[in-house]
Amino acid sequence: MAADASTAPNMSSAPNSGRASSLQRLARRRSTIAVLMTTPLLVVLIGLVAYPAGYGIYLSTLNRRMTGFMEGEWLPTGLGNFEILLESETFWAVAWQSCIFAITAVILKALVGFWLAHMLHHIPSKGQRKWRGMLLIPWVIPPALSTLGWWWMFDPAYSSINWLFQVVGIPAVPWLGEKWWARLSIIIVNVWYGAPFFMIMYLAALKSVPEQLYEAAAIDGATSWQRLRYVTLPMMANIISITVLFSLIVTFANYDIVRVLTNGGPRDLTHVFASYAFQVGILSGNIPRGAAVSLFMFPILAICAFFVLRGVTRRNKEQM
């Protein structure tokens, strides 16, 4: 007979089990064991995720001195910081820049990662490992360090990239000093850092596509583009969605690249939510307003997550 659905298998002898105390029975229940086993994780989640998030929401409702709730003119008391931000020109510029940065960087990372994964997939397995290792290097270096390396290459006065440009007669580029170049610079660094993650995820997905599907497509006379469009992409759709969602969350919340490369400049045109929240909250001593800035990411990411996960669920249902 199979073990009871609600209790762990009884290892003790049958005559003793009848005398077990209620405490022992409780300890033997599967649900009790499950709770005990997940308690460390729950403690970590509550302590390091739920509590800081709740405290952040609470802080965002306070006034600058944190002596009471922040009053609003057209929003209720407690939402005054959000009202001020919604009316702030700089905040909207930050929101716009965050979207430009995150969306562009994620699209480029996905494309570069996809291309790299395909290249790797077609390398014989003997040489694949070392290429895979080399291509993962940007992702395993701590981003604050690698960004510092990039900063030296972009450095306004001593850019090594500009030095190379001058060697071949190309005029120097103000990488961090001009609006669009500065935006491009932080996107380049983010793509360099994040593309290997996409590559490794897509490579795993490519390896899981059954070879018979390609053989069947070849028999039907499918071109390589058609194989990609009608076999590879549908089979990878869920992985692509999840990877994009994960990367979107991480990229939206990016702080170190902007902080090290541009500090939000020139003229606040490269600030993202996290760097602006730090400037307003910690540097300027307005912690509640800084918390409000960082919380603006939440609804944007929640909407993205809703649509992406809904797509994943739908595809799963179709495949069942």
Binding site: P156, A157, Y158, P174, W175, L176, E178, G265, P266
Partner: peptide
């Protein structure tokens, strides 16, 4: 001023002096 001063950090001016530029 140099056209990239808009992106200088607190070390930018030091480097400009020390480099002799």
């Amino acid at each position: 001023l140099p056209n990239d001063v808009w992106a200088w950090d607190d070390g930018g001016n030091n480097r400009a002096l020390i480099s002799g530029r």
